[in-house]
Simulated assay, not measured.
Amino acid sequence: MSIKVLVVDDSSFFRRRVSEIINADPLLEVVGTAANGKEAIEQVRRLRPQVVTMDIEMPQMNGIDAVREIMRTNPVPVLMFSSLTYEGARSTLEALEAGAADFLPKRFEDIANDKAHAIALLQQRVRAIASRRTSLASTRTTATRPTTTATTSVSKPTLNTQFSSSRPAVKPASDVGAVKMPPRASGKQYRLLAIGTSTGGPVALQRILTQLPANFPLPIVLIQHMPAAFTPAFAQRLDSLCQINVKEAAGGEILKPGCAYLAPGGKQMLIDGSSRSPKLTIRDGGEQLNYKPSVDVTFGSAARIFKGDVLAVVLTGMGADGREGARMLQKEGANIWAQDEASCVVYGMPQAVAAAGISSYSIPLEKMAECLKKEILR
């Protein structure tokens, strides 16, 4: 049975083009279209699609408000189409917080250099988010700064702004993705927290980072698959919501405790220097790499500099980026955690490390920050 899709855009040309691409996949079927947010809400109620593709800027009701209402009344995975501009990034992040599952650039040439690849990627994204039929409402978080009595207030500045071949045993399929929580703090000492994610990551990162105290004792590196136009806005958004400092990473910076460094879109973020004076290096993406930024690249560099003094977390996302970097970290003695299947938007990246036997625990998103604080704070 094919996956039912609703296409929403105020441009009849774009509705037709997206419909043609979706219908060209034998696993997908467009069951309806809508020209604005109000029509989309009604069509979702009437047609019960399994996925909605949604434009942001539309007359009568925009895509953000439509997503918010759909999630309130008839939750369904939504794929947003966005312009690759700073304002487009801000709107897209707002749509993701409202409940959208993922996004793609609206111009197909911005998705991939090759037209056929761009088409295949759109079809793949629709199939991927359709596999998660549960409501995303439970994993969303209100965009407000958390309060805590356990930390001191910190004034924050305005921002301007090849792997190991050794393979552990593969876990039985029945164990992969099941919740497995750390029973207690391990007592291990860390020098770095590293988090990698993709689809569903912006909301997951916000959920976790907003719960960390201002005096968090480690530097944090964040690798989120995201276009270059989006990472400055995403970093600034997180910084405005979190007690820790969050910024888009720049080359030459010395890693500092209580600060999270977001890998710039379209680039690779590596850690150089020494474990006592670690610094960031930002390089061009590299044509041979599928992901820019790549979790594998950053995790691998962390293994080289920090050895086993790393806690690495792999969150929701398509594909297997992070598995080989996590394998390198594990070989050095680092601890690897994964997000559990039920709380992921797409259970790809966490599944890759869990199935390979690399991750020690599979933790629900709503428990991740609590577990991190228990493990790291003394």
Rank of each mutant, 00 (worst) to 15 (best):
E109M: 06
R145N: 10
E29C: 04
L377Y: 02
M226F: 06
K115G: 04
K373E: 11
K256Q: 15
D25Y: 14
S138I: 05
T33P: 01
P278V: 03
P146S: 11
D321G: 08
A229Q: 11
P183C: 02
G32Q: 07
I129D: 00
S362G: 05
Q162P: 13
A118T: 11
E39W: 03
G37P: 02
G322H: 09
Q236M: 13
G177K: 05
Q268E: 09
P257I: 11
N113S: 13
G265L: 08
G325T: 13
R276E: 07
I111A: 12
T152D: 09
G63D: 00
R145A: 14
P168G: 09
A263L: 03
I41E: 06
G187H: 02
P172S: 10
I254P: 05
M61L: 15
M61F: 05
P59I: 13
L377W: 02
A128S: 15
F13V: 15
T316H: 00
E341F: 05
F13A: 08
L159R: 10
F108H: 08
P217W: 09
A150S: 12
G63Y: 02
A185P: 06
A228T: 11
G63T: 06
A214N: 12
P75T: 05
S277L: 14
Y190G: 03
D284K: 15
Y361D: 03
F306H: 00
A100F: 08
V203R: 05
V203L: 06
T149C: 08
V295L: 03
W337G: 00
E324A: 08
K171H: 13
S275A: 13
P183T: 12
A260K: 04
I358S: 07
L262G: 00
L47W: 12
V7E: 00
I220G: 04
A249G: 06
A229W: 01
R184L: 06
I111V: 15
T33K: 09
D65E: 14
L193W: 05
D10Q: 10
N290S: 14
R304T: 13
R323T: 15
S153N: 14
A354D: 10
A95E: 05
R140N: 04
K307W: 09
L192H: 03
T231E: 01
Q162K: 09
A354H: 08
Q268N: 01
D272H: 12
V314C: 09
D175W: 00
V203K: 01
T144E: 15
T92C: 02
H225E: 15
D309R: 15
Q123W: 09
A250D: 11
R48L: 07
T281R: 15
K367N: 04
F108T: 14
I358D: 04
W337R: 02
S131E: 14
V67D: 01
E370W: 10
R107F: 06
G317R: 04
L315T: 02
K292F: 07
R140P: 03
G300A: 11
I220A: 02
R283P: 02
Q330L: 14
K180A: 06
I223W: 01
G37V: 06
I244P: 01
L289E: 01
S82M: 08
Q123H: 10
S164D: 14
